[in-house]
C-alpha cells in the first residue's frame, strides 16, 4: 500500500482498537485530503469519537498507523504530539470547557499558552471568535451558567481560535436549534474556504452532512464502508448507507 498518498494530510491505515472485550475499530482505513471538508457518519456508539481521538493522539491504537503529513503519529512521544497538536483544533462532543475558567479564559487559553500576543490582542481575537459563533455577552460567564448549545459554541470558538490547519468537529450541531445549526454549518464552511482549513466533521445529522461535506464517509462496525460526494451518497445503492440516511429501523442493520 502506498504510504503517503498524494494530497492527503492525514492517512489512517488498518487501525484496530479494543476496549476490554469490546472491539471498536477493526481495520479502519481513511485518507483525508488537505483542504477538504470530510464528514464521518455512523450510528451512535460505532466509534466516531474514538476515531477522532486517534487522529490527535489522545488514544493510541492497538495496531495500525496514522500518518500526519507523512509522519506516523502513533510513534510520537509526548513532546512531538504536543508540537503536532499545535496544528489541530478539536471540538469535543461534550464541549469539554474548563469549568474553573470563564468563557473568555477558555477560548483565550490556547493563545495565552502559545500565541505570544498581548492581553489586548488576545481579548480582541477571543471576542471575534465568539462573535463568529453568535455569542458576545458571555465573555465573563462561567460554563456552568451556559446552556448545552452555548457550551458547544464556546467549544467551537476555542477549537478555531489558533486558526489551525485541521479542525476536528465532534457533532458540532447536536443540541442546537435549526437556525443556529445552520449558522454553525456556514461557519465551518467559511473557515474552510477562507483559511484553507481541513475539516473533519462527525455527525448524525444528515442535513448538516450534506451542507458541510465535500465528501461523506460512513463508519460501520469499525470500518469505513462508504465514501462519496453528497450527490453520490443520495444515489447510492449501498443498503446500510441507505438505511442510515433514510432513517429506517428496518434494513440490513438490526437494532434489536
Amino acid at each position: 500500500m502506498n504510504e503517503s498518498c498524494e494530497g492527503s494530510i492525514i492517512s489512517i491505515r488498518d487501525l484496530y482498537k479494543r476496549f476490554d472485550r469490546q472491539e471498536v475499530l477493526t481495520g479502519t482505513d481513511l485518507d483525508i485530503d488537505s483542504g477538504e471538508s470530510l464528514v464521518i457518519l455512523g450510528r451512535s456508539g460505532c466509534g466516531k469519537s474514538v476515531l477522532l481521538k486517534h487522529i490527535t493522539g489522545l488514544i493510541r491504537p492497538d495496531h495500525g498507523s496514522i500518518l500526519f503529513e507523512g509522519e506516523d503519529i502513533t510513534k510520537f512521544n509526548r513532546q512531538k504530539l504536543f508540537d503536532m497538536r499545535m496544528h489541530f483544533g478539536m471540538l469535543f462532543q461534550g464541549a469539554a470547557l474548563f469549568d474553573s475558567m470563564t468563557v473568555g479564559e477558555n477560548v483565550g487559553l490556547p493563545l495565552v499558552k502559545h500565541g505570544h500576543k498581548s492581553e489586548e490582542e488576545t481579548r480582541e481575537i477571543v471576542l471575534e471568535k465568539l462573535r463568529l459563533v453568535g455569542l458576545t455577552d458571555v465573555y465573563d460567564s462561567y460554563p456552568a451558567a451556559l446552556s448545552g448549545g452555548m457550551k458547544k459554541r464556546v467549544g467551537l470558538a476555542r477549537a478555531v481560535v489558533m486558526e489551525p490547519q485541521v479542525v476536528l468537529y465532534d457533532e458540532p450541531t447536536t443540541g442546537l436549534d435549526p437556525i443556529m445549526a445552520d449558522v454553525i454549518n456556514t461557519m465551518i464552511r467559511d473557515l474552510q474556504n477562507e483559511l484553507d482549513i481541513t475539516s473533519v466533521v462527525v455527525t448524525h445529522d444528515i442535513n448538516s452532512a450534506y451542507r458541510v461535506g465535500d465528501r461523506i464517509t460512513m463508519l460501520h462496525e469499525g470500518k469505513i464502508i462508504y465514501s462519496g460526494t453528497p450527490e453520490e451518497i443520495r444515489e447510492t445503492d449501498n443498503e446500510i448507507v441507505r438505511q442510515f440516511i433514510e432513517g429506517r429501523a428496518e434494513g440490513p442493520v438490526r437494532v434489536v
Binding site: 469539554a96 474548563f98 469549568d99
Partner: peptide, 17 residues
Amino acid sequence: TMKVTEQIDAMEMIAID
C-alpha cells in the same frame, strides 16, 4: 470530573501537560 468530562483531553489538545 475533569477526566470524565474530557477536560483533561482538552488540555492535552492545546498542548498543556
